[in-house]
């Protein structure tokens, strides 16, 4: 079983990202489960959402404490949230940032990768909404899901032009991470 934790701020679509990830993983033939860290959501507050991906049906209902992967939508969260908490040593931490991964001083043995998802979103979607872009980055960095499945899940949720542009941005982020040196 692979466990993913998404950090964001209220309004950035962390819960939607977790759901789309579950939809895409299921389309890939896996079983999946997505849920928010149930809180009193408000815009701007730190929020978390979780996704589990497994070959067998998922029964476990606890929150995720030792994720395989962590996605950080907003680099300002690094100052207020221990985003690497419990992250497995062989895991990957993906941060939306225009800085290189080695500029971050984070207490983890996991691999840190960055992607400038905000720039990709502004260039292609025209708005700084990064949740779907980061799913493309996740697919490229981890190989856990197919980029095509993410694109289809997003297009189904956001039909028309918005979905198409999101799909394009997802592919761009996927390509960047796929080619990234490890």
């Amino acid at each position: 079983m692979k466990e993913i934790r998404i950090h964001g701020r209220g309004g950035q679509g962390s819960v939607t990202a977790a759901e789309l990830l579950a939809v895409a993983a299921f389309a890939d033939g896996k079983f999946s489960q997505a849920f928010p860290a149930f809180g009193v959501e408000r815009r701007g507050a730190p929020v978390q959402a979780f996704t589990r991906i497994n070959n067998e049906p998922i029964r476990l209902r606890s929150q995720i404490y030792e994720p395989d992967y962590v996605i950080v939508q907003d680099p300002t969260l690094l100052e207020v949230v221990d985003v690497a908490s419990g992250l497995k040593e062989d895991g990957i931490l993906i941060i939306n940032s225009d800085f290189d991964a080695d500029t971050f001083n984070i207490d983890t043995k996991a691999k840190i990768m960055t992607v400038n998802a905000t720039k990709i979103a502004l260039d292609i979607i025209g708005r700084p909404i990064v949740n779907t872009v980061l799913l493309g980055a996740f697919a490229g960095a981890t190989g856990e899901i197919e980029a095509q499945s993410i694109k289809e899940a997003v297009k189904e949720r956001f039909p028309g032009k918005i979905g198409d542009r999101n799909a394009e941005a997802i592919q761009e982020a996927y390509n960047m991470m796929k080619g990234a040196k490890i």
């Binding site: 977790a18 759901e19 579950a22 999946s32 489960q33 997505a34 849920f35 209902r61």
Partner: peptide
């Protein structure tokens, strides 16, 4: 509540 009402699963 939440654990089942807000979970996405197949």
């Amino acid at each position: 509540g939440f654990i089942l009402s807000h979970v996405y699963e197949p």
